[in-house]
Simulated assay, not measured.
Amino acid sequence: MKLSFQNLQEKNMSFEEVFFHIAAFMKLDPKGNYRLMVGTDSQVHRTYTLFITGIVIQQERHGVWACIRKTVVPRRMDHLHERISLELSLTEEIVALFTEEKKNELIDIILPYLYEGASFTMEGHIDIGAGRRNKTSNFVNEMVARMESMGVEPKIKPDAFVASCYANRYTK
């Protein structure tokens, strides 16, 4: 199955096109500090549940390039654990596309400038919070462990803004 991504400028991008845009963004300033972040949010609608996975490459304090992928489940997913688990599975699916080879291609862009402060990190943003009053707090350990097992730095609310803000905007 071919994955399709979009943003305000382009529709129906393949993952290869997304990767090209990320690399091109980093090549504009290879001395930058880059964070590649992937996260998913969902919204239950009347007859379906909409999942939005965001991919964001950020050069700290210098802008971003971003895109989304839409996934529709043709039923209401009212059980929170099922929905959170599928959100994370969709994030994991995209993270897995960034193979060691792909990550090394991105690291090679900044590698000559490491000693001048350039950096690259990859994060998995999970739309859950650890606060006692948060309904998702029971799932934090499970979901964080899943992200860590993929070699990606997990971020939860309030630091998981790709899932809780960027992707959330497109679920309505």
Rank of each mutant, 00 (worst) to 15 (best):
V56Y: 01
V44T: 06
C67I: 05
I57P: 12
P74M: 11
D41A: 06
H62T: 15
V56E: 03
C67Y: 11
E93G: 01
V73Q: 05
H79W: 10
F51C: 06
I52L: 01
G54F: 02
K70S: 09
I68M: 00
Q43T: 05
L88D: 14
F51P: 03
T71S: 07
I52T: 07
A96H: 13
R69V: 06
S42F: 07
T49I: 00
T91G: 12
F51D: 03
I68N: 01
T49E: 11
Y48N: 09
T71H: 08
E82S: 10
R75M: 15
L97Q: 05
S42L: 03
R69A: 11
I52F: 01
P74Y: 09
R76Y: 02
P74V: 06
S89V: 03
V44A: 07
A66G: 10
M77T: 04
W65Y: 09
D41W: 01
V72Q: 09
T71N: 10
T47Q: 13
V73K: 06
L80Y: 04
L80N: 05
Q59L: 12
L86G: 09
T53P: 00
C67Q: 08
R46K: 13
F51Q: 02
L90A: 04
V64R: 06
I55F: 02
C67M: 09
T53Y: 00
E87G: 02
H79F: 13
